[in-house]
């Protein structure tokens, strides 16, 4: 899915200086625990999260995440936006909650882009 379309679907707002027409998003993950994001997200996906600190951008850069959506109308600090511009990671904010954001994108066919956890978390 093109990032431009994704932004339209969730009525999002682009916070960084990016042109969204040619950015392809291959899947999504919704989570607030950065360790979980680092463990399981696949490259070229969008991270949907309620967390809103510079660590999220760092996590995205380290894990090759293509874009970040901040839900519930959260606006990151200017330093996070600057960092995202430097690292070329589009930041988007939406007033929707994580539940509706996930639901809408799932229904539009965006696949879950999280590797299923292995036996590590099993009892």
């Amino acid at each position: 899915m093109k990032l431009k379309k994704l932004i339209e679907l969730i009525e999002g707002n682009l916070l960084t200086d990016h042109s969204t027409d040619n950015i392809e998003i291959k899947g999504a993950m919704g989570a607030d625990l950065m360790s979980d994001v680092l463990t399981s997200i696949k490259p070229e996906s969008v991270l949907l999260t309620g967390l809103c600190n510079p660590q999220v951008v760092r996590t995205a850069q380290i894990a090759d995440i293509r874009a970040i959506v901040f839900v519930r109308g959260k606006n990151p600090a200017q330093e996070a936006i600057n960092l995202a511009n430097e690292e070329n990671i589009p930041l988007i904010t939406t007033t929707l909650g994580l539940f509706d954001t996930c639901g809408i994108l799932f229904q539009e066919g965006l696949p879950s882009f999280e590797t299923q956890t292995e036996d590590d978390c099993a009892p």
Binding site: G30, L98, C102, G103, L105, F106, Q107, S112, F113, E114
Partner: peptide, 14 residues
């Protein structure tokens, strides 16, 4: 569920 948040929410939304 063995599935991640995104998938589970998507199915509930469906």
């Amino acid at each position: 569920s063995p599935k991640p948040n995104f998938q589970v929410v998507g199915e509930l939304w469906d």
